[in-house]
């Protein structure tokens, strides 16, 4: 477990450190800072369907994810890891139990509030990038910075993923790895509190995959965002602070890495 009152890693915004620049040096911020976790769930379940046909995707998950960590969720297909990611990401509703993002209860939020939550706090990276083909790399990132409350500069976000030179290219003019890096830039450009990655390297070769993991590592280190990665690739776990193993809709065990490996050292 992380120390109870650990300060979060400094968050760097477009206008400098945002803790001081933030207009609301306020009670809510105090409350948020007082929390030592990003997420906390209790008895979280998710059931699809009813009766005999019911599928129990999550069977009571109790979990605490500290701020600023890289957390890898491992487990076979259908073990519930993606379902958990979707609920924490505000894409899906739990059947029962509670899930807190800092002090806010996600399980009680309306669709509108979840949209707000995603808009303000969450970045997503998917296996298939999901870039807007009709927008250039820069514009794909601007898509997010235009609606975020405290975004990074577009150039900075693309710089973090090493794509300063390709900003005005359309997705069709980029390789898969480059597209995924744009997707990451887009996800981090809003300066998210938490970054969700669902099989981020699933469609990439080892070299490109490693580069993408590097970016995620950097983002975590420099922005202090909590990073949740769902993956099949067990090797990825070595770069995490914490590894959560899933089986049959429940947590089998949680391992904290004493020594984290750099993505370069990870064997693919």
């Amino acid at each position: 477990m992380a120390p109870l009152f650990a300060m979060p890693a400094p968050r760097v915004g477009a206008n400098g450190p945002n803790i001081l620049a933030a207009p609301a040096w306020s009670a809510s911020l105090w409350r948020r800072m007082a929390q030592n976790h990003t997420f906390k769930t209790e008895g979280l379940t998710k059931t699809y369907g009813e009766g005999e046909a019911a599928v129990h995707a999550l069977r009571g998950v109790d979990l605490e994810i500290p701020r600023g960590e890289i957390v890898v969720l491992l487990g076979p297909s259908g073990s519930g890891k993606s379902t958990l990611l979707n609920i924490l990401g505000g894409l899906d509703h739990a059947t029962s139990g509670t899930a807190f993002f800092e002090s806010e209860n996600l399980t009680e939020m309306s669709d509108r509030a979840l949209t707000r939550y995603r808009r303000d706090h969450v970045g997503f990276v998917f296996q298939f990038y999901n870039l807007m083909p009709s927008l250039t790399a820069r514009e794909n990132v601007e898509l997010v910075t235009e609606i975020a409350s405290d975004p990074l500069a577009v150039e900075e976000a693309l710089g973090l993923v090493g794509l300063e030179e390709r900003m005005d290219h359309f997705p069709a003019q980029m390789s898969g790895g480059e597209q995924q890096r744009v997707a990451i830039a887009r996800a981090i450009a809003k300066n998210p509190t938490v970054l969700f990655c669902d099989e981020p390297t699933g469609a990439l070769d080892s070299t490109t995959g490693r580069a993408v993991l590097h970016v995620l590592n950097d983002v975590n280190a420099r922005l202090g965002a909590t990073v949740l990665i769902v993956t099949h690739a067990a090797a990825t776990a070595r770069m995490a602070h914490r590894v959560i193993h899933f089986a049959d809709g429940a947590i089998r065990d949680v391992v904290e890495n004493e020594i984290r490996q750099s993505p370069d050292e990870i064997e693919w």
Partner: peptide
């Protein structure tokens, strides 16, 4: 894997337009 639809020939927007149009 599916290639993204190629929009490059629709070209970049000039700066004046860029200021007016959101994504």
């Amino acid at each position: 894997p599916p290639a993204p639809i190629d929009f490059s020939r629709t070209g970049a927007l000039n700066n004046r337009l860029r200021r007016w149009l959101d994504q």
